[in-house]
């Protein structure tokens, strides 16, 4: 049975899968950054808020659109959403730079970025 299946495999299959695996590995390679997470919150395509997570003293709740978002020092999660499928709540906490999660029906997107340290040591107002 298995032998019969293996016989069906053609060169293109192996090539395709190999290319996709390489592509996946490249995509998963960690990007540069200083580990300071910044959360960018988008509503209907507009960036409505940018929060530097590493500067947070305590957990912070935000309400954007129909979604409640909890910002923590080491990550972001959707607490509650008024959508029907609740996929955003099930996603849980997102902690890696470069990741993004969304509540698509509510058109709310949260992206985590980790910018390289700015050129300035500090900014004084």
């Amino acid at each position: 049975m298995i032998l019969k299946l293996i016989k069906e495999i053609k060169k293109g299959d192996l090539f395709l899968v190999a290319v996709l695996i390489v592509f996946c590995v490249l995509w998963f390679l960690p990007k540069g950054g200083d580990g300071n997470l910044t959360a960018e919150i988008f509503l209907e395509g507009e960036c409505v808020q940018t929060v530097a997570l590493s500067d947070l003293k305590e957990d912070r709740k935000l309400t954007v659109g129909g979604c409640e978002i909890l910002l923590q020092k080491d990550g972001v999660l959707f607490l509650h959403s008024e959508c029907s499928d609740k996929l955003c709540e099930k996603r849980g906490k997102m902690t890696n730079a470069g990741d993004a999660m969304a509540c698509v029906p509510q058109r709310v997107v949260v992206a985590l970025t980790s910018e390289k340290a700015a050129d300035f040591d500090s900014v004084v107002y």
């Binding site: 988008f42 209907e44 993004a100 969304a102 997107v109």
Partner: peptide, 13 residues
């Protein structure tokens, strides 16, 4: 398209 930003593409991996 629905959410209006391309940042979600990163979930693609």
């Amino acid at each position: 398209v629905i959410s209006g930003t391309p940042v979600l593409i990163n979930y693609g991996k």
